[in-house]
């Protein structure tokens, strides 16, 4: 099942998060915390990147430590095209996603020749390479970032991405679409192969799978999906900066996935919500909120194997025993 049975702790937890995403634009003003609509828009945009990372990390064992680079490539493509006066979304979006695919193909083709810690280091190196590229081009803002004057224009009536509600629900629909695509993919024949290769690559090769090609395909799909996150981010923030593809951003994505539950369909959404909401709340209390947040994450990794999803799933199991 897509969400597991609904009336289990895990099902209820996932339902609550999705319902929160649906009603936040009304809930936030009602409780006098209007900025939460923005927090949730940003959350859902990041969740798309986390979902895509989960596809390769949670289902394919590919721990990419440079996944934010595709947010950057997607976002900068929108920003740079817009800078040159091309704000047509029908051009911007396919081009951004296509470019992410091309870069993921190049980066993946090289990184996937290695395993384990080397794979992590090479993906990190590629991402940092692109980070320094974004810092060095003064025309596009270098480290001050690039202001984006106009959102993507689609020429569709009532569809205006500068409207907060429109971008909110666009992000929501994109996120749900990515979840659904992931769900279909990981349960398909293709998905069984990358999951098998995560479990035991040698075995998969010896029963006849050239696993490299399958893993590379998954890597490219994930890169393109993260590119969508970058496109939305550029439209929502009207700004792209090198920080978007800095290694810390990639590290945050890994944390979102681990916090939510690697290798679960909805896990990355819950992980992203918790990650961003907790950091938002903590940063309101104190400047040095990382001091609290860091140990919190360590505790989750140590004591909640399987993240939030795993935690709620185990609650369900102990009830049935």
């Amino acid at each position: 099942m897509l969400m597991g049975s609904l009336w289990t702790p895990r099902g209820i937890y996932n339902a609550v998060i999705i319902i929160l995403c649906i009603i936040m634009p009304w809930l936030a003003p009602a409780i006098g915390q209007e900025f939460f609509t923005d927090v949730f828009t940003r959350t859902m945009i990041f969740a798309i990147a986390a979902i895509s990372l989960n596809l390769i990390m949670g289902y394919g064992g590919m721990i990419s430590f440079g996944h934010a680079v595709y947010i950057g490539i997607g976002g900068y493509t929108v920003g740079i095209l817009s800078y040159h006066g091309i704000d047509n979304g029908w051009i911007q979006w396919p081009m951004a996603i296509g470019l992410c695919g091309v870069f993921a193909l190049i980066f993946g083709a090289i990184s996937l020749r290695t395993k384990g810690v080397y794979f992590i280091m090479i993906t990190l190196a590629f991402a940092q390479m692109m980070y320094f590229l974004s810092v060095s081009i003064e025309k596009y803002g270098s480290d001050d970032g690039l202001n984006i004057d106009s959102q993507s224009q689609f020429g569709v009536p009532f569809f205006d991405l500068s409207d907060p509600l429109t971008i909110y629900y666009t992000a929501f629909l994109c996120m749900m679409l990515c979840v659904y695509i992931t769900y279909r993919f990981v349960n398909s024949r293709f998905g069984m192969v990358i999951r098998g290769s995560m479990s035991n690559d040698e075995r998969m090769r010896s029963i006849g799978y050239p696993t490299y090609g399958y893993k590379l395909t998954a890597f490219v799909i994930a890169g393109m999906m993260a590119g969508l996150s970058g496109i939305l981010s550029a439209n929502f923030e009207a700004f792209m900066s090198p920080d978007n593809l800095f290694w810390i951003a990639s590290g945050d994505l890994i944390f979102m996935v681990v916090l939510g539950g690697m290798g679960t369909i909805f896990g990355p959404i819950g992980g992203t919500v918790l990650f961003l909401v907790i950091s938002e709340i903590l940063s309101n209390f104190t400047e040095s909120w990382h001091l609290i947040f860091g140990p919190l994450l360590i505790l989750v990794v140590l004591y909640m194997r399987g993240g939030m999803e795993g935690f709620f799933a185990s609650l369900g199991r102990s009830q049935n025993d």
């Binding site: 993919f185 349960n187 398909s188 024949r189 293709f190 006849g208």
Partner: peptide, 17 residues
């Protein structure tokens, strides 16, 4: 999975295996 391996390529993304 072993049966699947002999049925040609596995670039099939949509149907539940």
């Amino acid at each position: 999975l072993a049966v699947q391996a002999r049925q040609g390529h596995s670039f099939r993304f949509w149907k539940a295996a």
